[in-house]
Design a protein around this nucleic acid. Structure first.
Lengths: 332, 332
DNA sequence: CTGAAAGCGCTTACAG
DNA sequence: CTGAAAGCGCTTACAG
């Protein structure tokens, strides 16, 4: 920096001002400084900058798994479920104009203390927290740290934290109404894990839209294999099933396979509706009719909220709920 | 830190020494400092530390896509192909004992200058670079920056950089020999893109192991859908095919679907061998016989090499080649 | 609009 | 083994 200042014949303070562009600098001087920067190839040292600004210009995307599976299976799930790619795309897109970087931090239970330490050390200015399990202690821990945070779903318990979510029940209702309108008589559902809202709420919403009907449900784990197993269980118990709501597209892909492996046709014998509208929906045979949640937009909103909280620590928490829509394709 | 020093009745220098544990400190003093740290909940400021140590204790995992697809599809591919989860798992596992963090940085062509700036700013001490395309300028750019780096495959051109790879040709040969030993007569292959070694080398190795045979090949893009389309093309042109080598498990999953959609049985009518031994191999029906590359171990080795280069900048580059093995399951 | 100076919170020779 | 002091490379009141 001294080199640049000398080359441009100004003080370091002025160099700093043209780089950060906050206060105005005489045009002629600004240009000569910019030339000097270009000539010397100067790049500011981020550590020195953060030390004084107390900003890292980075935020963490913490993907929390409250259990403690073996390392590989957890990371495999994250890097295999299209959901996380969509979140990353949406968040980075929204962060980019602010010149804020996204650090992806997957963490299982065994790792939580590491993440807490990481956050306390000031590596990032805030956190986007993907944590859905109701018993996950991480949201509360992060909140206790006092670091700005935005959650990806309603926090378990009364935590004063901003979050973004989709209207889970409304989405499930869309699926129920569609199946009903198609004329399905014997309807069942593959739900997600019941200790996470995307599991319990979608199930509750689905059942509440079908009053008077007894809706069998089997729980899956949001993986393709889990959906397949759950669908088999359902078909074993209810061979004449004709309508199926599966709480995620990935699970629906497995469910489709289960239905077809039994020689039943989709949608004529069994109509199947998924949830997400992820890339998995298009991989399905037949292409999946599904409830769309605008994950990229939701992640962008999370990022925008987080930036707002970082810029104004006193800002009061708020929640933003997105409305799902039904995407009709070929499976129902 | 001053607070801790005061509480323990020592200088800040001593507090720093017990935290970093490099030089020895009198046991009694060390304990009282540790108690003071625990009591005050003190956590060192990383920016201040990096400023003097010139270390960030982070390394980047840069996943480079030299083309410029739309953002979503690139991130979708990364977060959908099990390969990247395995790399992340292997690298974080090896980095953890060194207390080094992994920052995942996906980047397409439009983003390269951003990444270069990020690296120059000193956010990380080194980079693990996943870049396979021969025309990707990023490896050379990173090397020019002078920042320690390790590549995930042989660099295009004579770049003095360390890298880790699997013996691609040997792997393809394993597949060829297995198909031959099974008695396959009419053999074809779905290759990866030919401008990346995992595409061209596997194809070359496969053909070289089958001298005298004319081996039709269609190129896929390492996605499930790509593998499916390529297999259909092959089956259109060669309806009596009885052996198929597909250059990745994900593509093999699609190929299996193509074969079965045509009413041909696997492995009795058509034997299929994949490559990777990723989680996709087990999702296949029937379970996929495949060439295993130990991706987690390879990523761990990359991380170990990178740490070595960071600790000793003068260290000369080296390459570490892993040997693949054939995993026999049900598809061939 | 610009510069001189202080200060961000650490680590690390250098003495002792 | 420990402390006083310098210094890492920036930004930002404070004057002018």
């Amino acid at each position: 920096m001294d080199e640049v200042a000398a080359a441009a014949g100004v003080s370091r303070a002025t160099v700093s001002r043209v780089i950060n562009g906050a206060v105005s600098v005489a045009p002629a001087i600004r240009e000569s400084v910019q030339r000097a920067i270009a000539r010397t190839g100067y790049v500011p040292n981020v550590a020195a900058r953060s030390l004084v600004t107390r900003r890292s210009d980075s935020v963490a995307l913490v993907i929390s798994e409250p259990e403690r599976p073996d390392d590989h299976s957890f990371l495999n799930r994250i890097f295999t479920d299209p959901y996380f790619g969509r979140v990353t795309a949406g968040a980075t897109g929204a962060l980019r104009p602010h010149d804020v970087h996204l650090v992806v931090v997957p963490t299982d239970a065994a790792d939580h203390h590491r993440v807490v330490r990481y956050l306390r050390q000031g590596h990032v200015d805030g956190v986007l927290l993907i944590s859905s399990n109701e018993h996950d202690p991480l949201p509360a821990q992060v909140h206790a740290l006092g670091i700005p945070a935005v959650l990806s779903s309603r926090p378990p318990g009364p935590l004063p934290v901003s979050y973004v979510d989709v209207d889970q029940r409304a989405g499930a209702r869309l699926a129920a109404e569609h199946l009903l309108a198609r004329g399905c008589r014997e309807i069942a559902t593959v739900s997600g894990p019941l200790d996470i809202p995307a599991g319990s709420e979608r199930l509750a919403g689905f059942r509440s839209a079908l009053p008077g009907l007894d809706i069998p449900a089997v729980t899956g784990d949001f993986t393709r294999a889990g959906g397949e197993a759950a669908a088999h269980a359902l078909l074993d118990a209810h061979p004449s099933l004709d309508g199926l709501f599966v709480a995620s597209d990935l699970m629906a892909e497995g469910a489709l396979r289960a239905v077809q492996d039994r020689g039943r046709r989709v949608p004529s014998d069994v109509a199947v509706v998924g949830f997400d509208d992820s890339s998995a929906a298009l991989e399905c045979r037949p292409a999946l009719t599904t409830v769309r949640q605008p994950v990229e937009e939701m992640a962008a909103e999370m990022a925008a909220l987080l930036i707002a909280h970082i810029d104004d620590p006193g800002r009061s928490p708020r929640s933003v709920i997105f409305q799902p829509t039904l995407i009709r394709r070929d499976s129902a």
